[in-house]
Design a binder for these strands. Structure first.
Length: 740
DNA sequence: CGTGGGCGGATTTTT
DNA sequence: TCCGCCCACG
C-alpha cells in the first residue's frame, strides 16, 4: 500500500500534518524538524490518497534550489517524474503565468526580465535623464522605494505625497521608471509578482480557471512571504481553498527585504478553519545545541511558540572563545579546524559563519597561513558576471532593439568609437521623441549622418541587424557562439594587455572571462526542454532563465574545504561543526539593529538560525578588540552569548603553565573532551606582567593583572580593569604600562 | 577612450 | 582599512 511508503518514515507530528484533512493547514516547522519531508510527503499523500491529479498541485518555494530539491524528492517518492506538477519559485511561477497571459497582463510578448543590477542601472539613467542630483536622489534609495511599494502592491497612482516634496519626487520617479520599463518591454523581479497578482485580480475568468485547476497549493518558507506573495496566495486559494503552508516564525530573517512574519498570524485569521501543526522534534543537533538555541530564542516576544527537542545525544557544551582580536579569533578557529581534520573529519563538514562578509578576511588569512583549503560563499554568481551580462545584453538587443539598458551596455563594447558624448546626444533625442535609443539613432536626419561617430553608430546597428539575420534558425548554443565571436566580445577579452610588462593577474582574469564565455555557450547547449512548454523561442527562454536563475556561486567545487559564509546564506544548511564568529555587540547584533526592537529580534532569530545549523559541535567566538573600518574598537561580548543558558556553555582558554591557579577556576567548566590548546613556548612571562601587577591601558584605564599566558608577542594577559571589568589583551597590541 | 588616483562609505540577499 | 566609483588626465 502506498500509505506505508508515505507515512512510515514520519514521526507522529509529521504524520499528522501530512495526513491532515483538506482544510487550510499551517505547519510550524522548527529548524531541522523535517519540513521538506513533510511538504513532499504531503504532495504524495494528496496524489495517492486523496486522488488529487498532479495537474491540480501548485508548490511554491523561494529559491530555485529549494524548488529543485522538492521536485527531486517528490519524483523519488512517487517513482515517476511528476511532469505536470507546478513546482517552482514565486517568481518562476509568476513568470510562467505572465508568459501564458502576456496580453491580459498588459505586457509585450517577448518581455524580458531585469535583474537587480539592470534595474538599478535603469533607475540611475532615469535620475540622470531628469537632471536630478544623484547624491540627493540615490539610485539605491529610489530603487528601494519602487521595490518596497511593489512588494506591498502599490502602483504610483496609489501613492499620496501629502506635503512631502521628497516623497512626491519619489512617486514621480517610480512613475517614470514604469514608463521606461513599458517602453523597453522589460519587467523587474517585483513586477513579476505584482503583475501576476493583478492578472488574477483583474481577470475573474482567469482566476476562476486557475482556482479550479490548482485545488492544492503548498508554500514553503511561509515566514518569508511578502505582502504581494501572500495576497497572491489568498487569491488563488479563494475563500474555500485549503492552502498548505509550512514555515517557522523563529527563522524569519528577511524582514528587511519585505518579508512579513505576521503573515503566519494573518493566515490563521484569514483562514478560519485552518489547523495548526507543530514539528518540534529535531533530527539534526545535539541536545546541548538545542538547549542553547531554545534558551536564546525564548528572549523574543510574540512568538507562536515552539520548543525543539531531540532523542539524540546530549552532546558537548557550547564552546565559547574570547579572542583578543579578530586575528586571534581566526587563528583559534584555524587550529580547531586543523584538530578536526587531523582526527579524520572532512573540512566540508565545518562551517565558519559570520554576520557580514567583511569578516571573512581574517579567516581567509589564517586559513592560508595554516594551509587549510576553504571556500567563501558570496560574491557574484555566474549570470551576474560582467562579461556574461555583456553577452546577454547583445542577445537581448537582438531580440528587442528597444531595450535601452542592453543598448547602452554594448553600444561601445568592444570599443568602436561611440563615446559618452554620442550616447548623451542620443539619450536626449530619444527623450524628446519618447522613443528608444535605437529608434532615435535610426531616425536621425541626413544632416547628422555624415560624421565619424555617425558612421560608427551605423556600423553598430548594421552589426546587430546582421547578427540577428545570421543566427536565425541556428541552434541556441550556436546562436550564442556566433554572437560572441562576431560581436568582438571574445577578441575583446582575449587580447593580451600590450607592453605593460605582463601584469599576471590581468592575463589570468582575461582567461577566466574567456572561460566564462565558453561556459555560457555550453550552458546554452545543455539548456533543454525545461521551458519548452512556454512556447518561447529558445533564446528568449534562455534569457529568462538567466535572469531567474542566476546560476552557481562557485565554480571550483572539488576540493574538500571549510565552508565560510554569512548567517543568512547558511539558512537551510547544516554542518557537523559550526563556528559562529564575531559575537560582539555592534557586529552581531549589528549596530543598526540595536536601537530597534523588531530589528534586534530579527538579529536574535538570525543567531538562532546560525546555532541550529550545527549538528555536533557549536562554537561561539568573539574578539575583545576588533579593527573595524580601520579603527580599533573594543566591543562588548554579544548579548546573545549571555542569553544562552550558561550551564551548557564552556569557556575555552588555552592551557598554559603560568598562572595555573587563577586559570583553574575558569577551567573547571571546560570540557576535557575538547583538546586544549598549548602554546609552543614556555618562556617566562613578559616583564612587569606578573600576577597582581597594576597596569594602565590607553582606553580601559587602570587594572590588575589576573592571568598571564604565553610569552613574546603572542603573550596574553587578563586584566581586571576598575571601570571596564575583566578583559583579555594581547601584549603585542595592548600597550600596557606598569603602574607603580 | 582608458586608466589611475582621490574620495566617501562600509549589514544581511533571492528572484 | 579597504573597496568601488567618479573624474581628471594622458
Amino acid at each position: 500500500m502506498y500509505l506505508d511508503a508515505i507515512l512510515n518514515p514520519l514521526n507522529e507530528a509529521q504524520r499528522a500534518a501530512v495526513s491532515a484533512p483538506l482544510v487550510p493547514v499551517l505547519v510550524l516547522a522548527g529548524a531541522g524538524s523535517g519540513k521538506t519531508r513533510v511538504l513532499t510527503h504531503r504532495i504524495a499523500w494528496l496524489i495517492q490518497v486523496e486522488h488529487a491529479s498532479p495537474y491540480s498541485i501548485l508548490a511554491v518555494t523561494f529559491t530555485n534550489k529549494a524548488a529543485g530539491e522538492m521536485r527531486g524528492r517528490v519524483e523519488q517518492l512517487l517513482g515517476a517524474p511528476p511532469g505536470v506538477l507546478w513546482i517552482g519559485t514565486f517568481h518562476g511561477i509568476a513568470h510562467r503565468l505572465l508568459r501564458l497571459h502576456w496580453r491580459e497582463a498588459g505586457l509585450t510578448q517577448g518581455f524580458q526580465i531585469l535583474d537587480s543590477d539592470d534595474q538599478q542601472r535603469l533607475v540611475k539613467r532615469i535620475i540622470k535623464a531628469n537632471d536630478l542630483d544623484e547624491s540627493r536622489w540615490e539610485p539605491r534609495e529610489v530603487t528601494w522605494f519602487i521595490n518596497s511599494n511593489k512588494d506591498e502592491g502599490r502602483r504610483p497612482k496609489d501613492l499620496k505625497a501629502g506635503n512631502d516634496p521628497t516623497r512626491a519626487q519619489m512617486i514621480r520617479l517610480y512613475g517614470l521608471y514604469e514608463e521606461a520599463c513599458a517602453r523597453a518591454g522589460v519587467v523587474d523581479f517585483a513586477e513579476l509578482l505584482l503583475r501576476a497578482y493583478e492578472l488574477w485580480r483583474d481577470h475573474p475568468e482567469l482566476l476562476a480557471h486557475y482556482r479550479q485547476r490548482f485545488r492544492h497549493v503548498l508554500v514553503d518558507e511561509f515566514q518569508d512571504t511578502n505582502s504581494i506573495q501572500y495576497a497572491w496566495l489568498r487569491l488563488i486559494a479563494g475563500p474555500e481553498g485549503h492552502p498548505f503552508v509550512v514555515g517557522d516564525d523563529d527563522q524569519s530573517v528577511y524582514r528587511w527585504r519585505g518579508a512579513r512574519v505576521e503573515n503566519l498570524q494573518q493566515f490563521r485569521r484569514d483562514f478560519e478553519r485552518s489547523k495548526l501543526y507543530r514539528l518540534e522534534q529535531n533530527y539534526r543537533s545535539t541536545a546541548a545545541i538545542l538547549m542553547a538555541a531554545n534558551g536564546l530564542i525564548a528572549h523574543n516576544s510574540g512568538r507562536l511558540g515552539k520548543t525543539l527537542w531531540t532523542n539524540g545525544e546530549p552532546g558537548l557544551p557550547i564552546q565559547l572563545y574570547a579572542a583578543f582580536n579578530e586575528r586571534d579569533e581566526a587563528e583559534f578557529v584555524a587550529r580547531r579546524v586543523a584538530d578536526y581534520v587531523a582526527s579524520g573529519n572532512r573540512r566540508d563538514d565545518i562551517a565558519v559563519l559570520y554576520r557580514s562578509n567583511a569578516q571573512s578576511r581574517a579567516f581567509e588569512e589564517a586559513f592560508i597561513a595554516a594551509r587549510i583549503p576553504y571556500r567563501v560563499y558570496g560574491g557574484l554568481r555566474f549570470f551576474e558576471r560582467a562579461e556574461i551580462k555583456d553577452a546577454l545584453a547583445y542577445l537581448r538587443l537582438l531580440l528587442n532593439r528597444d531595450d535601452d539598458g542592453a543598448y547602452e551596455r554594448v553600444v561601445n563594447l568592444p570599443t568602436r568609437g561611440i563615446g559618452e558624448r554620442t550616447v548623451e546626444t542620443l539619450r536626449e533625442e530619444a527623450r524628446a521623441a519618447g522613443s528608444s535609443l535605437w529608434k532615435a539613432a535610426t531616425s536621425r536626419s541626413d544632416a547628422q549622418q555624415g560624421g565619424r561617430t555617425a558612421n560608427a553608430l551605423r556600423g553598430f546597428h548594421e552589426l546587430i541587424d546582421r547578427l540577428a539575420q545570421e543566427i536565425a534558425g541556428l541552434p541556441l548554443h550556436e546562436q550564442i557562439d556566433h554572437v560572441l565571436k562576431q560581436s568582438g566580445l571574445i577578441e575583446y577579452h582575449g587580447r593580451e594587455k600590450p607592453s605593460q610588462d605582463a601584469v599576471r593577474g590581468e592575463v589570468a582574469r582575461n582567461e577566466a572571462r574567456l572561460e566564462n564565455l565558453a561556459e555560457l555557450v555550453s550552458a546554452a547547449r545543455s539548456f533543454g526542454a525545461e521551458s519548452a512548454d512556454l512556447e518561447l523561442p529558445p533564446l528568449e527562454a534562455f534569457l529568462a532563465h538567466a535572469a531567474l536563475e542566476s546560476g552557481e556561486r562557485q565554480s571550483d567545487a572539488g576540493e574538500d574545504s571549510v565552508q565560510m559564509m554569512t548567517l543568512h546564506m547558511a539558512k537551510g544548511l547544516e554542518f557537523m561543526y559550526v563556528f559562529l564568529c564575531g559575537m560582539e555587540e555592534g557586529l552581531f547584533p549589528h549596530q543598526r539593529c540595536i536601537s530597534d526592537l523588531e530589528a534586534l529580534e530579527e538579529e536574535r532569530r538570525l543567531c538562532y538560525v546560525g546555532m541550529t545549523r550545527a549538528m555536533k559541535h557549536l562554537y561561539l567566538t568573539y574578539a575583545e578588540q576588533r579593527r573595524l573600518h580601520g579603527m580599533d574598537t573594543h566591543p562588548a561580548p554579544s548579548r546573545f552569548i549571555k542569553e544562552v543558558p550558561q550551564d551548557i556553555v564552556a569557556e575555552v582558554r588555552p592551557r598554559v603553565q603560568v598562572a595555573r591557579a587563577v586559570a583553574a577556576a575558569r577551567m573547571r567548566r571546560d570540557q576535557p573532551a575538547v583538546p586544549a590548546i598549548r602554546f609552543r613556548t614556555e618562556e617566562p612571562p613578559p616583564p612587569g606582567m606578573h600576577l597582581g601587577a597594576r597596569v594602565r591601558h590607553g582606553k580601559f584605564g587602570e587594572g590588575v593583572v589576573l592571568n598571564v599566558e604565553g610569552s613574546g608577542p603572542h603573550a596574553r594577559v587578563q586584566v581586571n580593569f576598575e571601570q571596564q571589568g575583566t578583559k583579555w589583551l594581547m601584549m603585542q597590541y595592548a600597550n600596557l604600562e606598569p603602574v607603580s
